[in-house]
């Protein structure tokens, strides 16, 4: 408990010894077994995504109608093949790329929007009311429905899914950033900066934002989990990846029709999604515990 307090304090201070803080956080994170497992899964997944062509022997979209719906542990296809005779392992591996890329794009866009709104709202009292109402509005809108409307306008594609999901994470992010800004804005050194004539933009980006860094990182990690899950859900509803893209949610939705004859087509991508989302969640959780267990992130 005492330890945590120091770290939290260290974060709020003008970060006198950044290196040390990171070392402490890393050390603590590595003590958390669950988080380590999560990290391993994430590293494996990134590896899979980068080296996809090297660890698979089939093209993920290449059909072979003579070898369709092979069960798991078939010769040459250890995870079997789908209705079109495409290798499930190859599709899972290439699907890792898609999940990661869509997740990263969605989270980045969401952070850009959320951080901007949060900074402006926290810093300028006049803007705060309007921005918080926008945030409330986005909050009270069922996320999946918002995404469906956005995709209805923009059309079905992974890029649009990323945009739709990013909008979904703007309100939470804005609230977190705004909270941090409010807590530091009145601090002496910021006041001092102001009186020295530093521009608002400089103060916000150079001095306030770094202090909100810790909650943002935790938030981003957990949002990766949500983003990957949401991408899969939207693809499941037929609103995401265009066929024959090997997207995991789309694979489940296609596989469901064969649930009785070839359950692996549903089960395998489901496990892939679950493990990935699980990994990001435990790492996010671990990070939070390591930095400051009382951090409020919804």
């Amino acid at each position: 408990m005492a330890e945590t307090a120091t770290v939290a304090a260290a974060n709020v201070k003008k970060a006198p010894s950044k290196e040390k803080t990171y070392q402490v956080v890393a050390k603590r994170l590595l003590k958390n077994k669950l988080a380590v497992i999560g990290l391993i899964i994430i590293v494996l997944q990134i590896g899979m995504a980068i080296f996809a062509p090297l660890i698979t022997s089939y093209d993920p979209v290449k059909q072979n109608l003579d070898a369709s719906e092979l069960p798991v542990f078939s010769e040459g296809h250890w995870l079997g093949t789908d209705n079109y005779g495409r290798d499930v392992w190859s599709r899972i591996v290439f699907g890792a790329r898609i999940s990661l890329v869509v997740g990263i794009v969605a989270v980045t866009l969401g952070l850009l929007g959320g951080v901007t709104l949060g900074l402006l709202g926290g810093y300028y009292k006049k803007l705060d009311g309007v921005i918080m109402r926008i945030v409330d509005l986005l909050f009270s809108f069922p996320g999946i429905l918002l995404a469906m409307l956005i995709i209805a306008i923009l059309g079905t594609s992974l890029i649009n899914v990323a945009i739709a999901i990013s909008i979904w994470s703007i309100p939470s992010c804005a609230r977190i950033v705004r909270g941090s800004v409010l807590s530091i804005k009145e601090k002496e050194y910021i006041m001092a900066m102001k009186s020295l004539g530093a521009s608002d933009f400089r103060i916000m980006v150079k001095h306030i934002l770094p202090n909100a860094f810790a909650p943002i990182i935790v938030f981003a990690t957990m949002r990766m989990a949500t983003a990957i899950l949401s991408t899969a859900s939207l693809s499941y509803l037929g609103l995401g990846a265009q066929p024959p893209t090997p997207e995991w949610g789309a694979m489940i939705s296609q596989g469901q029709a064969f649930m009785w004859s070839s359950p692996h087509l549903t089960v395998v991508p489901g496990i892939a999604i679950m493990l990935t989302v699980f990994a990001f969640n435990v790492v996010g959780d671990g990070l939070r515990d390591a930095i400051d267990p009382n951090m409020d992130i919804q």
């Binding site: 209805a152 059309g155 079905t156 037929g238 609103l239 265009q242 066929p243 024959p244």
Partner: peptide, 9 residues
Amino acid sequence: EIESMEWAA
């Protein structure tokens, strides 16, 4: 390239 769409669109 396949461009799949929901029915109304």
